[in-house]
Computed example of a mutant assay.
Amino acid sequence: MSFFKKLKEKISNQTDSVTEKFKDGLSKTRDSFSGKVNDLVYRYRKVDEDFFEELEEILISADVGVTTVMDLIDELKDEVKKRNIQEPRDVQAVISEKLVEIYQGDDRETEGLNIQKNGLTVVLVVGVNGVGKTTSVGKLAHKLKQDGKKVLLAAGDTFRAGAIEQLEVWGERVGVDVIKQSEGSDPAAVMYDALQAAKSRNVDILLCDTAGRLQNKVNLMKELEKVKRVIEREVAGAPHEVLLVLDATTGQNAMSQAKTFTEATDVTGIVLTKLDGTAKGGIVLAIRNELQTPVKFVGLGEQMDDLQEFNAEQFVYGLFSEMIEAENE
C-alpha cells in the first residue's frame, strides 16, 4: 500500500470536521507549496540533481528553514537511491512520508497538553505582543471546556492597555471566570491570587496569560522567572506547560522569537497562530526540527473552535490533499 493510501486510511479514522479544518486552513500553503511541487514533478522526466535543486528552492520559499531543507533533501536523496525511484511523481509520497517523520519526531507523547490526572494543571502562555496570545488563551479555554475540563483564566498581562478587558471578553464568551487585578499590578501577585482561587474551586486547568515585551528582554525574562517561582512554590511540578505563541505569518521572525524564548525559559510547546493566513506553513517543520520543540496547537481560522491540536498526519494531508484524493479515486 502506498504512503498516500496509508495516510488517507489513517485520516479516515479521525474526525471529519478536524480534517476539513486542516484542509481549509492550509489552503494558502497548499496552493503555493504543493502546487509548485506538483508542477516540478510533471516538468521533470527523471529525478536528477537539477530536480533536487529546484525542490530545495521550493522548500526554502515555504519557510521550511535552510538547515531543515538540507537535512530533508539529503534524506530524500538516500530514499530515492534506496528505493530505486526513477519517476519524479513517485517522489511526492516520499516527501510526505519524510515530513510526517520530522513533524512527529521520536516523541509522539509530546502531542497535546501535559494534563495532570490528579490535581491542578497550570499552563503558562508566553510570547511577544501582537501574535494572538490572549486570543489563543481564550480559544484554548473553549477547547478544554468542550473536553469537559473546569477552566480558570489568570490575567497576567497587566501592562498592555486593554489586555485584561480582552481576556474578560473571552471569559464571558467561553463561560469561564477570570482572576485579575488592576492595570499595572504585579503579574506575580495576580498569579498568586489565581492559584489560590484555582485550588479552592477545584479547577482542572489554570491558563495564565502573560505580558509580551521581547524588546525589553531582560525585564520580561525576570518577570517570567518571578511568575514561575510563584507558580512552582504554590503547585508542585508546575507550570506543567509553558506554551510559546508565535505568529505563522511572520515566518523566520517567528523562528527567531522561538530561539530567544527557548533559550530564556523552559518552553514545552508552541502555539502557532494565523497558519491559515500564510503560504509559508513550512515554518512548523523548521521549529520542530531545529528547536526540537513540539508544535502543540495551530490556529486555522478566526472562529472560536479553529485552534486545533497539532497532528502531523492531518497537517501533511492538508498540504497534499488534492494529490492524496486523486490517488485514492
Rank of each mutant, 00 (worst) to 15 (best):
D31A: 11
V295L: 03
I324S: 10
F261I: 04
G281H: 04
R229M: 00
G25F: 00
T260Y: 12
E183Q: 14
T249Q: 12
A264N: 08
R43Y: 07
S12M: 05
M255I: 03
N311V: 03
E168W: 04
S61E: 12
A93C: 07
G175Y: 01
V41N: 02
V190S: 06
D31E: 14
M70Q: 05
L7V: 02
E87D: 15
F261T: 01
V316I: 08
V176F: 06
K117D: 12
L113Y: 00
I102L: 15
V128Q: 05
I60T: 12
N328W: 13
V122H: 05
A154W: 06
A326P: 08
Q181H: 15
E225H: 07
L291I: 01
E79L: 11
T67A: 15
V151S: 01
R201P: 04
G112E: 08
Q166D: 09
M221Q: 02
N38A: 15
N114C: 01
D266V: 04
T278D: 12
E329P: 10
I115A: 08
E54Q: 15
G251D: 07
E263S: 14
A258V: 02
L300A: 09
K226V: 01
Q92H: 01
L140T: 06
D157R: 04
T268I: 05
T19Y: 04
A326C: 08
Q314I: 10
E313M: 10
S321W: 06
K296W: 05
Q215G: 12
Q116N: 11
A248L: 03
G127D: 03
V203A: 11
Q116C: 08
N38V: 09
V123K: 02
F320S: 09
K222Q: 15
N118C: 00
N219Y: 09
L195R: 04
K143A: 04
Q86L: 14
